[in-house]
Design a protein around this nucleic acid. Structure first.
Lengths: 325, 325
DNA sequence: CTGAAAGCGCTTACAG
DNA sequence: CTGAAAGCGCTTACAG
């Protein structure tokens, strides 16, 4: 039985309301050049007939759409899931309909998804690009569609982007750690596009205090188990390490598991929400996903209206200091 | 510049390929009644012109669509995020395009989302219904559209549903706990639609061993902090409690925080993926989200093809025993 | 403020 | 196997 309902069209509505199709259309598009009486009749007819607006037809005719595709790199990253939720909310408040998809950190899937979605009329793409995204590809896409890069900046791409101030995040977190005057400090990063920014904030904080850090380590997988193994090995060769700045709390948990004695000297740059956490376990920088979502929509709207947008929007982060237990 | 590209249509493709519009259309819809030579010419023309198929137009004309809306109740629940990812994958393999949206556990939002999305041509709705979903509403929706209820069953609704075997999950987990011969056993549930099934599996396991459990407790919020507080209070009135079956590991973490001495006597029915976890911290039942996704798509396809579908599909769960540390 | 008409890009019988 | 024609449900000038 589903989808069989011989569809009610604006023609039927017009007929019932005793007006013309055009008038119904004007009501539907919230035009103000419609007599109030007509409008009421139309609204009533819509209600009585159970009419539902066909946006595909409208989009086809008008060339416009309120659909915004949000390509998340990894929905199973709780921070990204939260961001997706906030973006959806913000888009909804701005009268857009969000379409969320996940590229699962695969460039191929990212490309495929966007190619597929190009076949529908969409107003814009908000993309959290995966690490190996090609700048040329993104620029080509941005030449034909409205595109915003979110959370990650694709190096050398000129597509507008909105992201947290990664450099500041690692900087403040590192400064906080340096308060405890550690001797040998290490940075443990990951392979994400944000790693570069984090590292540079870390380095600048070290430099400020004339500290020469140990060579940074990169975790190839984002699991605490992997971080634990990597750090265990590192510690074997550098037993003097007494403080660690981690890219995020996933890595921090792994480092902690490998070296419980360092507990108060482990900090995390980015906080990823952790469903089992009662109190913050590491000093970290908090990312305001709501603010990121809001900024993205603002940039999007500006782009839709004026065809120009700020190239880069940095959203502030806030230091959150772990309470001593 | 975006979206300005004066669109290339099948007419242009037909012209360039030296065939008619119909032929191009047949190629696009993968019809087999097209000469191989024509097909090649068409494909080449598509490539040369950078033609992109307009699915809105196609859907409008044909009355069909490959869009499937997936309404997740809470994207920030890692289990649901994982499920969303798996559903998207499975849909993609079946040549559907998934549209993921999140109702944020709000009935109003759930209703609004679906009403909004009805305005686009969609093939089906896969819904993880929020707790207070009305059966009548769901049945009405299912009368007009293809609908599948996922993860949660709306009581007294006749919409087909696919869900984990909650009753078995709590049953096996409780049996495992009873091995340690606890004296006073308690069930800590939540307010989700699955709570009823969990409780009944718990009760049947108790009954099997002639155990009379303490009256079950319900957590109104799904945070470890709240569970901790609730359990602390419970413990004040019932200090003899020596074993707890929790609806999930979020609650289990709260209970553990309130009563660390019970550690080996706390089990969790449903395991929600936890990004900071190195080893499973509680004995629990594992939910196979991939299997759930696969089953959903199978039910969906059956429904699309034959307009009938099994009313209820239970997906098996697997006991995972915590390693003693 | 309203009506008649054209057209968005496609699919689908229907003749050839 | 291919071409000409109608039509999916809307929007948009354009006259009235």
């Amino acid at each position: 039985m589903p989808n069989k309902a011989k569809s009610v069209t604006i023609f039927d509505v017009a007929h019932r309301a005793g007006v013309s199709k055009s008038t119904v259309s004007l009501v539907l598009t919230h035009s103000n050049k419609v007599a109030d009486k007509s409008k009421q009749k139309v609204l009533q007819a819509i209600d009585e007939l159970g009419y539902v607006y066909n946006r595909d037809a409208a989009a086809m005719r008008s060339g416009r759409s309120n659909l915004v595709v949000v390509v998340i790199d990894d929905l199973t990253n709780p921070l990204m899931a939260l961001l997706a939720k906030n973006i959806e909310q913000a888009l909804s408040e701005a009268f857009f309909q969000a379409i969320i998809v996940s590229s699962n950190n695969s460039v191929e899937r990212q490309t495929q998804l966007i190619n597929n979605l190009k076949e529908y009329k969409v107003a814009a793409f908000i993309i959290c690009p995966v690490a190996s995204t090609c700048a040329q590809w993104l620029d080509n896409l941005a030449a034909a569609y409205h595109v915003i890069s979110l959370m990650h900046e694709v190096p050398y791409s000129s597509a507008p982007c909105v992201l947290p101030d990664y450099t500041k995040a690692s900087h403040v977190v590192t400064l906080q750690l340096i308060n405890d005057s550690p001797k040998n400090i290490l940075f443990m990063g990951d392979e994400s596009l944000s790693a570069q920014g984090l590292l540079s904030g870390f380095n600048s904080a070290c430099k400020k205090h004339n500290i020469t850090p140990k060579p940074a380590i990169t975790c190839t997988k984002s699991t605490p188990l992997h971080a634990k193994q990597v750090f265990s090995n590192t510690l074997l060769n550098n037993p003097s390490i007494d403080a660690v700045v981690c890219a995020n709390n996933i890595i921090a948990h792994g480092v902690l598991a490998a070296a419980p004695h360092l507990k108060s000297n482990i900090v995390s740059c980015l906080h990823i929400p952790d469903i089992t956490e009662i109190q913050p376990r590491f000093t970290c920088a908090n990312i305001n996903t709501q603010e990121l979502a809001k900024r993205s929509i603002l940039v999007l709207q500006e782009q839709l209206q004026t065809n120009t947008a700020p190239v880069k929007t940095l959203v502030n982060v806030n230091l959150q200091i772990r309470e001593t237990p």
